[in-house]
Nucleic acid binder design. Structure first.
Length: 433
RNA sequence: GGAGAGGUGGCCGAGGGGUUUAAGGCGCUCGCCUCGAAAGCGAGUAGGCUGAAAAGCCUCGUGGGUUCAAAUCCCACCCUCUCCGCCA
């Protein structure tokens, strides 16, 4: 959420911000917000004076008796009516202002590249060239079928389309990847969590997800105020809701494991094939709460951890600096890592890390107390440590052999119970695609 | 799921319509005392909104209600504890 005090100062900047994000300025009612705010403050001044008078009279009443007392009660009753009327007006103004403020996107960081949509995202780094195969590489879906690793048909039968069972070595790989991630991040000082897979609407909303509506990404639990989380960002971010953290405890570095559920409404298509876009997957998520002056540094730090993970897995990737028009509302800046996916013949997103500055902190009321005593909002950042589904695509496709077998990345060997290679259980499928 | 008890400041804990715009204690900070420390003594110790400031207003789990006045009374919900039931 944007602070009304900040908006008063930076209304023009917010308008430019909205345009840079390729959003419709008309929908955000900036001038209206300022007008409501003006009225609201005017009302509050009058209201506070009336209340002050009422409080004084009420206290007097307690001390007096008889005629004097009745006289005061009469006066107080009149005041009460006036206050009630003004208060209703004030509350509706405040509610309206809050509603509009809640909808505003975060301010961009100046470093965020300007651009209209994903075509304007900037590749800022490339690690290793895509591997050249001496045979036509298969995509992960075919490899998964040959090696009996994923069962989409039965996932569909039992739950619905785009649900799946992971089987056999794919299961070993999920646990191995998670164990690998713990080994990477525990020495970095991360605290590890397994979070709830559900969260209250107010938390979902606070992080910046829309729990309802036609375009919601969130599965809702009927007759409750709960939704299935789309990422542990939600539960890790909500962890400190309404808290004031001691400066000395910052930065708080968290690693959370959870299942992720996404409706992916209207997202079917060319790139949704197989594991790339599914309704449920497991993910390890990095989350950092830090001081405002540290958040840029922390953002780079998360990216460096993500890079290290893919370097150790030995998967070629590139780093994308997401442009203003392609950012979600909470993010002030965002980096994605895209891994090379030979089956698609192109890079595909495998991680994403965002600096949300104080946007989520305001919505969730998460602050910290400086040694000097001042209380301020924290900055909150999140990033993917590993998303199993996408990581599996990258591993299967990059480490495939001509016969359809898969070499397991060496760095995972300590966690795969001696399995170093996955051998096909059935022959290559003719005319598979 | 059923029955009972309870949710008060960083923590413990009193208060059950007006002298509490929250007693007392612990913790923490500062000062006095001391060579130094402990003890003792004194002072200070939540957040938000409005305001240039002085100050005012709001917050006793959350949301409604009653009242001139609510931590205190009423209703709903949430959470915690104890006992019972069920259960991985």
């Amino acid at each position: 959420m944007i602070d009304i005090k900040v908006l008063r100062e930076k209304a023009q900047e917010m308008k430019e911000n909205i345009l840079l994000r390729n959003l419709d300025l008309e929908k955000y009612n900036i001038d209206l917000i300022l007008e409501i705010d003006r009225k609201r403050r005017e009302r509050q001044k009058i209201l506070d004076e009336l209340k002050s008078e009422r409080n004084k009279i009420s206290q007097e009443i307690g001390k007096k008796t008889g005629e004097e007392k009745n006289e005061l009660i009469k006066k107080a009753k009149e005041l009460k009516e006036e206050i009630d009327k003004l208060e209703k007006e004030f509350e509706s103004l405040e509610k309206e202002m809050h509603k509009y403020l809640w909808q505003l996107p975060n301010f961009l960081l100046p470093e965020t590249p300007k651009g209209k949509d994903e075509k304007d995202n900037i590749e800022i780094k490339k690690w290793k060239e895509p591997k050249i195969f001496s045979f036509p590489p298969r995509d992960h879906l075919e490899l998964a079928l040959m090696n009996d690793l994923i069962d989409f048909e039965r996932g569909s039968k039992v739950t619905g389309s785009n649900f799946y069972y992971l089987k056999n070595e794919a299961v070993i790989l999920e646990f191995a990847l998670f164990q690998f991630i713990i080994d990477q991040l525990l020495p970095e000082g991360f605290k590890i969590f397994i979070t709830p897979d559900l969260a209250k609407n107010e938390i979902l909303d606070g992080i910046g997800f829309q729990p309802r509506g036609p375009e919601t990404q969130i599965y809702r639990i009927e007759e409750t105020n709960l939704g299935l989380i789309a990422t542990a960002e939600i539960t890790l971010g909500g962890y400190h809701k309404n808290e004031i953290i001691d400066e000395t405890e910052l930065p708080l570095k968290y690693l959370g494991f959870s299942h992720c559920f996404r409706t992916e409404a209207g997202a079917y298509g060319r790139y949704s094939r197989g594991l790339y876009r599914v309704h449920q997957f497991s993910k390890a998520e990095i989350f950092i709460f830090c001081k405002p002056e540290d958040s840029k540094k922390m953002h780079e730090y998360i990216l460096s951890l993500e890079e290290k993970i893919f370097q150790k897995l030995d998967i070629p990737y590139r780093v994308i600096d997401i442009c203003s028009g392609d950012l979600g509302a909470p993010a002030a800046r965002k980096f994605d890592i895209e891994a090379w996916m030979p089956g698609r013949g192109e890079y595909g997103e495998v991680t994403s890390c965002s600096n949300c500055t104080d946007y989520q902190a305001r919505r969730l009321n998460i602050r910290f107390r400086r040694l000097t005593g001042e209380v301020e909002y924290v900055h909150m950042l999140n990033g993917t440590a590993i998303a199993i589904s996408r990581a599996l695509i990258a591993i299967l496709e990059n480490f495939q052999q001509e016969d359809g077998s898969i070499i397991i990345p060496e760095v995972l060997h300590p966690y795969t119970l001696g399995i170093k290679e996955i051998k096909p259980k059935r022959k290559a499928l003719k005319n598979f695609t």
